Simulated scan of single mutants.
Amino acid sequence: MGTRPSNTGYYLKEVKTLVKRDISSNLLSVLSLAFIFFILALVFSLGLGSNYMITQIEDQAEISIYYEDSASVPLLIQELEAIEGVMDVTPVDDETAREQMIQVLGSDSRIVELFDHNPFSAYLDVGIRIESVDKISEEAALLSGVDLVRDNKEVLQKLQEISGLIRIIGIFILLSVSIATLVITSHLIRQGVYLNRDSIGTLKLLGAPDGFVYRPFLVNGMLTSLLAGLISLIMTYFSTRYLYSQLSGSLPFIVLPDFADHMITLVIFTLSLSVILGIFGGLMGIKSTKPKNS
């Protein structure tokens, strides 16, 4: 009666018996863990999204150079390209600037049509290395004909602050979820051991090793946590898809990661965590039922 593969059917049969004997506790545990994993998955999703946006902004870092009407644009482009850290310089005329703003505003772009004239000015779109933004902005502001230098450094800093806050919150929630999962799973296992104490005693009298006796309880804890993880992923899928549709419609300028890749990462993270916590919770529950001297 060791741990041979042929015992798999026995273990699954015993898990089914354990669930039937205390179906209310198992159901409540699954639902409780599902909502806990759902909250964790949402926070993890927000963290992934914010990190992706920051990476995209850093990879596509740029500053906008607005120039005076009397400025020589070709000369200004040449001088900007000579600054260390500048990757490329692209002139954007006033009509293109207007079209870009219409795309950014989305459904609110009708406000642009209220103007009798084009309120947007031509500018130079300067691609840069993000680490050189301060130096480039300072040097660009000193060039002849430059009227205004606008960068996205403050936006990036705010996003980094938000991402850092989400990361801290995520760590606390991860710790809370881990503790809650271990407590719920171990309690479920202890309850199962108590309800089946007579069967366990009989098996031990027949010489069955602890591994054989308690493995069904461990499998039960792991499957309970895994099922909760699967349910949480269903809720996360619909919630995330809704958020994607809302953000894409109202804030089209926000850069979001690919939905399919995003969900694959969430699935791997949630299921891996649920299995690991389920196993450790089961081990804790089993250990707590054994006599101190065993």
Rank of each mutant, 00 (worst) to 15 (best):
L174W: 14
T181M: 02
L12T: 07
A41C: 10
S137H: 11
I162N: 08
E95Y: 11
P74N: 09
V133K: 01
L31M: 12
R110T: 11
L46H: 05
M53T: 15
F38N: 01
T289F: 05
S144N: 12
D258F: 06
S163I: 08
S29R: 02
P5G: 06
T3C: 05
M263P: 08
S272D: 10
G221M: 04
R98A: 14
E161T: 14
E84I: 10
S137I: 07
P74Q: 10
Y52W: 11
L223I: 13
T224R: 00
I39G: 08
M222E: 01
V133E: 04
S50V: 13
N293K: 15
G278A: 07
L76T: 01
S32F: 06
D151V: 05
S137T: 15
N152H: 09
I171F: 14
V30M: 06
E62N: 15
S25T: 11
L142S: 14
V89C: 03
I39W: 02
S248P: 00
E79K: 10
Q103W: 00
L233T: 06
I65C: 04
A41R: 01
D258M: 09
R197N: 10
I57Q: 13
I286M: 01
G285V: 06
S232M: 07
Y67T: 07
G278D: 03
L243M: 13
Q157R: 13
L273V: 14
T270Q: 08
F259P: 00
N293W: 12
E113T: 07
D93M: 10
S29N: 02
D116S: 11
F269A: 08
V43H: 03
I65S: 03
P74A: 07
V267W: 05
L256A: 11
V275H: 00
F217H: 06
V92K: 08
T265D: 07
